[in-house]
Amino acid sequence: MSTLEIRNLQVSVDTENGAVEILKGVDLTIKSGETHAIMGPNGSGKSTLAYSIAGHPKYTITGGSVTLDGANVLEMSVDERAKAGLFLAMQYPVEVPGVSVSNFLRTAATALRGEAPKLRKWVSEVKDAMEALSIDASFAQRNVNEGFSGGEKKRHEIMQLELLKPKIAILDETDSGLDVDALRIVSEGVNRAKDANNLGVLLITHYTRILQYIKPDFVHVFANGRVVEEGGPELADKLEAQGYAEYVGN
C-alpha cells in the first residue's frame, strides 16, 4: 500500500522575463489501487504538475511538499524517484538516438530491480509486453522513440509501465493523438498494470473519452495552476456536457 501526497505544491519556470509561477498550491493524495483523473484546459499546468513530481530540471519548486509513503520526493534525484516507485508516461516521449529499445528497457529494469534480469525470462517478458500492446517485435531493435508515430510512442510508454511495475503512475495525456483502437489497446495496458500491481494512477487528460476505458475513482478539475473542483466519476460527465468555460474565467 503506497500513498503519494502532494501538499500545497507551488512551481515556477524560468523564462526570459524572469520566473513565472505556474502551480499555485496543488493538493492531491493518490493511494495504491486508486485512479484519479485530472482534467483541465490546455495551459492550466497539468504537465507542469507531472514533470515536477518526476523531477524535471526545468521546474523550480517554490513551496509545498511531495511525499511517497512519507519519504520526501522533492529531495530525490530523477532516477531515485523512479526507484522509489514513481513513473511518468510522458505527453511527448523523448527520442534517444542510437539507443535501442531493447537496451534501454534492460538498462532501466536492471536499475530498478537492482540486478540484471535473467536473460531468458527477460526476453519473453519483453516479448509478451510488446505483443499485449500490439507493438511489432522489430521495435526492440529500433532507437528509443525515434521515428515512432504518436500512437507508437504512447504504446511504448505503457509497455514500460507494464514492465517496470511502479507503485504510482502519472499518465500525461496518454490518450491524446490516439485513434479508437489504439486508445483501447493503451487503456487495456493501464488496466492490466492496475490489476497486476495494485497501481495508483494519476490520469491527466483533456478529454473524457479515455475515462470510458479507464474508470476513475476521483475526478479533479484543474485550472490556472490549481485544483478548482473535485468529485467522483459524475464530475467527468458534467465536464463532458459543459466544458471548462465555467472554470477558466479569471
Partner: peptide, 14 residues
C-alpha cells in the same frame, strides 16, 4: 537534458 531526463525517469542513474 530531455534525453537524460527521459532515461533517468526510468530509474537509470545519471
Amino acid at each position: 537534458d530531455e534525453q537524460l531526463f527521459y532515461l533517468m525517469s526510468r530509474g537509470i542513474a545519471i
